[in-house]
Amino acid sequence: MAKAFTTTVFAANDLIGGDSVYLGADAWVRDISMAEVAGDPAEAEALAARAALGERANIVVGVYAVDVSLADGTPWPVTRREQIKASRSTTIPVGPAARLDVAA
């Protein structure tokens, strides 16, 4: 049986910076809340085709679909992995900030 469709956004990594980006209405955006949401398979297919252009234009790397839920129309990933990726940082303080954290 085919998997039931889940609301989706398209994620990738920025080619130069390597940071996580999402396909927005006009461009690749860093804030997932600005990502374009596909509400059905046809929309997902259209977004996938647009996302692939970003890869071909060497703007982003490694496009894939991310399952999201919507709160007031704003997408947020369903899985822990994608939530961490969308938060664009580690879940804990690191580096010099962590040193202060440990010392405190």
Partner: peptide, 14 residues
């Protein structure tokens, strides 16, 4: 772990 790694399935550091 999942704080950094693309292959990870769970966090290790915390």
């Amino acid at each position: 772990g999942l704080d950094y790694c693309a292959l990870a399935t769970a966090r290790s550091i915390p």
